[in-house]
Simulated scan of single mutants.
Amino acid sequence: MRILIADDEPELLELLKLSLQNEDWIIDTVGNVQDAKVYLDAYTYQIFLVDRTFHGKDCVQELITYGKHKNPSMGILVLSALGSIDEKVQGLEFGADDYLEKPFDIKELRARLIALSRRYVPKVKIFEELEIDLNAKKIKKSGNEVLLSGNEQKLFFYLLERESIVSRNEIMDAIYDNPENITSNAIDELVGRIRRKLHPGIIKTIKTRGYLIAI
């Protein structure tokens, strides 16, 4: 499991990294909002542990929104000295999944992280240099997000979720509102564009039968 911790207290970041990191957990730490966004862009995190304030400014709503946009399946825990009922409720209303007040017990924090990890089990497939997040429907190639058109995305994830040979007619019925107005060549063209953007071998052509993604 990979966890990102964002806090403007260097000593706390070091303590959390030493206390939480183990053979199963990879811990990344950042000390400001911009670095947090850079890491959220670069990696797929299962949990984002974030402070409310950075150098006196409340940035939690901005970071929660950014994080959930990048990875809707990521669990977010707010760790903050702002611990009134209203402040906790506000953090949860912003989109956080849990809220823990500082000072805290490391055992309780670990237990909450484990509970969050159970709720947000990522569905990620790896193929060569591709990292494919089935929940968020996002694809990264060598760490950089690849943008597919609407129909390219529909076709790719339809094939990926089926995990079986799918005919052109089935694909057309699945991704087009009016498939009767679409030629079968349109599917071939979509497949070609996806291969060029992602990897030549990501979609296999099964002669006379259709297409298959087997990862």
Rank of each mutant, 00 (worst) to 15 (best):
L198G: 13
L92K: 10
K107R: 14
Y66K: 02
V89Q: 08
D58I: 07
K154E: 06
I3W: 08
T208F: 15
K88S: 05
R209N: 09
E128C: 11
L18S: 10
E128V: 15
I215Y: 09
S167C: 02
R195Q: 12
D86V: 06
K137M: 13
L212Q: 07
I106G: 03
N181F: 14
D28R: 01
E189C: 10
V38I: 11
M1N: 06
V33N: 07
T44D: 12
F157A: 07
P179T: 10
Y158R: 09
R162K: 14
N71K: 01
I27L: 08
Q90S: 15
E128R: 15
K57V: 13
T29V: 14
R112E: 08
L148N: 02
R2D: 09
Y39P: 02
L40C: 10
T205Y: 10
K88V: 08
R118K: 13
E170I: 03
N22W: 02
A115H: 08
A111G: 13
I126D: 02
I64G: 06
A136N: 02
A96M: 01
M1L: 11
E87N: 13
I85Y: 12
F48D: 05
A6N: 05
I85R: 10
Y66V: 04
N71G: 00
D177E: 09
D98N: 04
F104Q: 01
E131N: 02
E11M: 10
A115G: 06
Q34L: 08
E87K: 10
N178A: 11
L100Q: 06
D105K: 05
E14L: 07
R195K: 14
K102I: 00
K123S: 14
G83M: 03
A111C: 13
S84V: 10
V146F: 00
I132N: 03
S80H: 04
N22L: 01
I64Y: 03
S19Q: 15
F127E: 03
I206K: 04
